[in-house]
C-alpha cells in the first residue's frame, strides 16, 4: 500500500522517529496531555504545536483481536493479533503483536515496542510480550 502522500507535515517526525528506533508522541506544553496520533493542536485544550517526546515503548494491551480474514493486501499473513496498546506515558495506539503466537496475547498483558519494516519496507512500531 505504498502511498506517495506519506509522510505528511504532522507525521514526518513520527516516521523519522520510527526509522531511528524511537516511538515518538506529542505532549501539550500547556495542559500536559499526551497526544497520539500527532497533530497541529492539543486535542484537550486546543493549544497549538504540541511538543514532541519519546516513549519508553512499554505498555499494556487494552484490546486484542486475532485476525483470521485479513484485508486483501494482508492475505497469507493470518492469523495475527492486532492490539490497542496503552503506553505508560498516557496515550493509546494500534499495533500488531510479533514474535509470539497470536492467540497467547490477552487484554492486560504487558508489551514493549519493537521496530520492524512494514509490508512497504517502512520501519514501523510493532509490539511483543514484555
Amino acid at each position: 500500500m505504498t502511498d506517495e502522500t506519506l509522510p505528511d507535515p504532522d507525521s514526518e517526525p513520527y516516521w523519522q522517529g520510527a526509522a531511528a528506533g524511537e516511538l515518538r508522541y506529542q505532549r501539550c506544553g500547556a495542559c500536559k496531555t499526551a497526544i497520539f496520533y500527532p497533530r497541529a493542536l492539543c486535542t484537550n485544550c486546543g493549544a497549538p504545536d504540541p511538543d514532541w517526546s519519546v516513549s519508553d515503548g512499554q505498555g499494556t494491551v487494552y484490546a486484542v483481536s486475532v485476525v483470521h480474514r485479513p484485508p486483501p493486501s494482508f492475505s497469507g499473513q493470518a492469523p495475527y493479533a492486532v492490539v490497542l496498546v496503552d503506553l505508560d506515558e498516557g496515550f493509546r495506539m494500534m499495533s500488531r503483536i510479533v514474535d509470539a503466537a497470536p492467540d497467547t496475547v490477552a487484554v492486560g498483558d504487558r508489551v514493549r515496542v519493537i521496530f520492524r519494516d512494514d509490508p512497504d519496507g517502512r520501519p514501523t512500531p510493532y509490539f511483543t510480550p514484555a
Binding site: 496520533y37 485476525v67 494500534m94 509490508p119
Partner: peptide
C-alpha cells in the same frame, strides 16, 4: 493509508 489512517493501516485490521 493517509491522514489519521496511516497509524492504523500498517497493521492489517479488517475494517
Amino acid at each position: 493509508n493517509d491522514l489519521g489512517y496511516q497509524y492504523e493501516a500498517p497493521y492489517g485490521l479488517p475494517t
